[in-house]
Design a protein around this nucleic acid. Structure first.
Lengths: 221, 221
DNA sequence: TTGTTCGTGATACGTCTGTATCATAACGAG
DNA sequence: CTCGTTATGATACAGACGTATCACGAACAA
């Protein structure tokens, strides 16, 4: 074989260019040429690594999902061993808010893809329906254990609470993206919500019981 | 003047065509030609009533907003005179969920516009930031009066609760749009939330006190 | 009736898009 | 060294897009 270049890296370089274009000018400004320019390669190269624009778009979405999952897993891993349910919940929701510019870029592009998926079922039923469903199930598990440990407010139902948390996180994130409120204000509302979900006892550093497994899947979809 | 046609009606006919196209194939499929075909007129007519595509897009967004406000006002007007705060809140949130096909179409297109607005500030800061802000203020007013009447759970802060309600409504609506959950499930979560916001007394048909004004603005933005 | 303006149609133009084609440089196997 | 596969560049092509232009019918004012 002749000189070999790391294909995966090249593909990542190009999809990252796509994300930059989409974050700055919107997903409608993503063309084979604009992506090539943004990633510093020629149009031909984009064609070489992605047979069609549809493939390129799908690859970029998959990369976004993988990156998001990586950030999320890293935050969970940075937690103290055997973390409290409240810590896990807050960690899961911390990624939902666009706090810095990089996070904002991610959410802008992700939202644009979600909007696309609403009229194009072929494009990613998995990331937008399956992904959140799995996350919601995982959160439900965490909350069920929290309830057994008496960390939850009376009358809280884990499944409904998980749905509420995720929907609230998404809704607040969107409100920040459109400029309705600041990320700080959104974080306040989120804290207000979590304060009313858990018993007001001081945050304990570790749970008192449990199976040892965190209940949150560690591998990407 | 020669034979006169109702310009406003023609413009409405065309923007409605745009919304149909956008709801079925996405906002990226909206072209001067596709809109013309969907509204049963010639390309030239679309150009005649809208000088540019940007104007057409803005007009369609304004019509969407006006229609949404009309539906919302109609629901409020259909309520019993001097309605309970809970009834007002539930009415405001009922529109947030895409329950039927028409509502789904509206939300799909609205979301696509919101996604556009994130990278194109010129397009509508008002509908996406100002509008929700005003709605949130109005809801806050309703909740403040409800608190005075002891209809709210202990410790509820009207401003935070209003933000929570709106964010939750939007988040749940989006989860329905992407197929993550059914509209019925979303309504269950919403009811779960409202049940925990108001005191669990049976819903009263009318408030006991108040100024007489509903606290909700009656005219469009 | 005549004329001027509004409303409508058909069609053309330049640009940008996704994709395809031709050509060639780099590099390892034989 | 030579050859064939891999990687990259320059350019071409057909279609769709937004917009502009030319042309004609329809209706009221004079």
């Amino acid at each position: 074989m002749p000189r070999t270049v790391d294909h995966a890296q090249r593909r990542a370089q190009i999809t990252d260019g796509l994300v930059r274009v989409a974050a700055r000018e919107g997903l409608h400004a993503v063309t084979m040429r604009s992506v090539a320019a943004a990633s510093g390669v020629s149009l031909r190269l984009v064609q070489y690594y992605f047979d069609s624009k549809a493939q390129l778009m799908r690859a970029a979405l998959e990369r976004l999902e993988a990156q998001s999952h990586a950030r999320w897993a890293a935050r969970l891993a940075a937690l103290a061993p055997d973390p409290s349910a409240r810590a896990v919940v807050e960690t899961c929701l911390a990624e939902a808010l666009p706090t810095d510019e990089e996070s904002r870029a991610f959410h802008v592009v992700w939202t644009a893809y979600a909007s696309l998926a609403m009229t194009d079922p072929s494009l990613a039923e998995q990331p937008f329906a399956d992904g959140p469903r799995r996350l919601e199930r995982a959160l439900t598990g965490v909350l069920e254990r929290a309830r057994r440990d008496d960390e939850l407010m009376a009358g809280a139902e884990p499944a409904h609470e998980a749905a509420r948390l995720l929907a609230l996180g998404h809704g607040l994130g969107t409100s920040v993206l459109v400029g309705q409120r600041s990320a700080g204000d959104a974080a306040d509302v989120l804290r207000y919500h979590v304060d009313r979900l858990f018993t007001s006892a001081v945050r304990r550093g570790a749970r008192t019981g449990g199976t040892g497994t965190s209940g949150v899947p560690a591998s990407p979809p």
